[in-house]
Amino acid sequence: MTRRCVSPSEAVIQVRGLCNRFGPQVVHENLDLDLYRGEILAVVGGSGSGKSVLLRSIVGLQKPAQGNVRVLGQDLLNLSDKARSQVERRFGVLFQKGALFSSLTITENVALPLIEHAGLSREEAEHLAGIKMALAGLPLSAAHKYPASLSGGMIKRAALARALALDPDILFLDEPTAGLDPIGAGAFDQLILTLRDALGLSVFMVTHDLDTLYTITDRVAVMAQKHVLVADSIDKVAAYKDTWIHEYFHGPRGRSAYAAATHPHEVS
């Protein structure tokens, strides 16, 4: 596996001093985090540690109480609507539950951004949508179905196809492999790796899947005590002295995922 060496100057996302609170409940306090160009960064943390809120703050769906978030060198919250839309086209976001438009078929879901933003005709857009769906591993039979009649794994794939529709620079994935069977999850990991290498994507991922962490991530950021405790390569993070991190990486699941990643032959 090749891990990219990236220099800190190429940060596509810079989060500085981020604070988020909901009423009296403080979710983030002085949170700093960078995503470098071309890397796959995974954010892990206990339930309720504010991983999804962080993702929402970065894509501009959540207005932070303090601090700033720069994406591709621009502060999303201070941009005009038009400029913001330009930047947002360079995101692909895969929401936790897919968030497919329930009144459109899968093909129409994927073709929508192509028609609206890339100015393709409906026919071209649906042709290209078919290719994205094939890339995401959707079977042919799903193309003209509505999201309500698809399984959870299929919805994830369709949502990935839609996130990739405009060939984004940054891909945001919120628990991409949750709800997928192990074979599907493994294929999903490989797909993201291939797309990253081929397209130079930067991937920001919230995940709990230890296999994903060990197989495809370049860096892991651990969220605890309202900020990023440590963000480094997985070996260094696993060796970090903290009870939660120790239990996370050296519990039975962590150990087996580590064994699977380091000795793939024995496992297969």
Partner: peptide, 15 residues
């Protein structure tokens, strides 16, 4: 990238 697309398309034609 082209290989990935080719292999994805090989068992997939337009619906």
């Amino acid at each position: 990238l082209m290989q990935t697309i080719q292999s994805a398309l090989s068992d997939y034609c337009q619906p």
